[in-house]
Design a protein around this nucleic acid. Structure first.
Lengths: 213, 213
DNA sequence: CGTGTGGTTGAAGTGCGTCAAACTGGGTGG
DNA sequence: CCACCCAGTTTGACGCACTTCAACCACACG
C-alpha cells in the first residue's frame, strides 16, 4: 500500500484537515483495515470500490456494505474496528486521523452535522440490509441488490459489477451458487442481460424493482 | 395516548430542553409513530419496552429493534420515519421536537457528540443484526437473541420477555413456529429453563453464547 | 498449451416454512 | 365457582427453497 501526501485531493468534508490526510493506493484485494484493529483513522473512498465484512469463527463471512467513491469507511463508536475492509478493485482512499476529525468537528458545526448525518444514513442502510436478509427470498434479494447498486453507481440501465459472485452472496446471505442461478433465471426471464459475468444490463428496471416486494 | 408536561423527568441528554419535552404514556400495542409520518419528534423510552418495525407490501414484517428504557427512537436522516414504532408493554416515552434538539446541538458540544455516538451505536447494532440474519441458523439466532437481550436488560440469569413469539420471530427473520421449537430444544438440552412463555432462566450462559458462533 | 481462478449448472440433501391441530392461561359472563 | 372463550403458544407432518456436493465451463496468464 503506497502512501502520498495529498492536500490537494481532499474532499470538501475534510477542508482544513489537509495536514492530517493521507492518500492510500491499494491493489485489488488489499486490506484497508482489519477487524479488531485500533480505529485511529476514518477513510473516504476516492476511486474504486471497497467492501467491509466480518468473519465468523467457523469462516462464514458477512459483507456489511459495498463502498463507492465518496463514501466513508471505518467510523466507529469504540476504539477498534468491528469489521474488516478491503478493496474489490484498485482503490484509493483518503485516511484522516480520527482525533483530528473529532477536534475539528468540535469547532466546525457543519462538519459535525455532516458526520451525524453520515452515521444516521449508515444506520438506515444497515436497517434496509437487515430487512432484506430477514424477510426476502433469493430472487427478491438479488433483484433488490441489482436495483440498489445500479442506483448507487448512477447507472441508467447498464453497469459493471466490481465484485465477485461470492462477494454478492456474502452480502445477500446466500451462496454463490444461488446467486448465479438467480441471475441466470433473471436473464432467462428477460429482466437483465448479462453480457459477461461482470457486466449487467437492466431491462425492465421498473419490473425488476417490483420483484423486491 | 395521554400527554403531560414533564420538565422534571427529562433525561440528562435533554437538559435545557425542558419546554420542548412532552411525556407520552401508551397502552400496550399502541403506536408511537408510523412509517412515512413526518419525523418531527425524537423519543426516549422512559419505562416499558418498545419496538420499531417495517411492513412489506405483502404483509411480511421485519422488527428492526427492541427499545429498552433510556434508548432513543425515531432519529432519522430524512424528513419522515422509515419505520413504525409501538409499545410492547405499557410504555412511557419522552418526545422532543427534532428542531429543538438540532438547535440545542448547534451550541451544546457534548450533546452533539452524544447524538453522534447514538447514531454510530445504532448503526453497529443494525450491522450486528444484519450479520445475524445473513449468516446464522435458527438455533444460533435464538441463542444470540437470548444472550443479547439478557445483557441489555442487565439480567444475571433470569428475565421476563416483554414481546410475543411472533415479535421475536419477526426480529430474527424466522416464523413463530421455528422460534417456539428452538426454545423447546434449548430447554430440553438444558440451556434454558422457561418457567412460563414470557419468563426465561438462562442456565449455562457461557455455553449459550458459544452457540452463537 | 497447461494451470488456476471465477462462474455455471445439475442432483441430492436438509433446515426452515407451511398447514393443521391441540394446548394453556388469563379473562369474562352466567 | 365454573364454563367458556380467545389470543398466544406448542407440536406434528409435510413440502419446498436454498445449501451442499460434484462436475464442467470460460477466460486469463505463464
Amino acid at each position: 500500500m503506497t502512501l502520498s501526501s495529498a492536500t490537494d485531493q481532499i474532499g470538501e468534508a475534510f477542508a482544513g484537515l489537509g495536514p492530517s490526510c493521507v492518500v492510500l493506493r491499494l491493489a485489488p484485494g488489499e486490506e484497508i483495515f482489519g477487524e479488531g484493529e485500533p480505529a485511529d483513522y476514518v477513510y473516504q473512498v476516492e476511486s474504486g470500490t471497497a467492501c467491509t465484512y466480518r468473519i465468523l469463527s467457523d469462516g462464514r463471512r458477512q459483507v456489511c456494505e459495498f463502498h463507492l467513491p465518496g463514501e466513508f469507511i471505518g467510523l466507529e463508536a469504540g476504539v477498534e474496528h468491528r469489521a474488516s475492509a478491503e478493496g474489490l478493485t484498485s482503490v484509493t482512499v483518503v485516511a484522516v486521523r480520527r482525533s483530528a476529525l473529532a477536534s475539528l468537528a468540535a469547532t466546525d458545526l457543519a462538519l459535525s452535522r455532516r458526520l451525524w448525518e453520515l452515521a444516521i444514513k449508515g444506520m438506515q442502510q444497515s436497517q434496509n440490509h437487515a430487512s432484506m436478509l430477514g424477510r426476502l427470498g433469493a430472487l427478491e434479494r438479488v433483484a433488490a441488490f441489482l436495483v440498489d447498486f445500479a442506483e448507487r453507481v448512477g447507472a441508467r440501465d447498464a453497469m459493471d459489477l466490481p465484485m465477485t459472485r461470492q462477494d454478492i452472496a456474502d452480502y445477500l446471505g446466500l451462496t454463490m451458487h444461488t446467486v448465479s442461478r438467480t441471475l441466470s433465471q433473471l436473464q432467462s426471464e428477460g429482466f437483465i442481460d448479462a453480457r459477461s459475468s461482470r457486466h449487467v444490463e437492466l431491462r425492465r428496471q421498473a419490473a425488476l424493482a417490483d420483484l423486491c416486494a
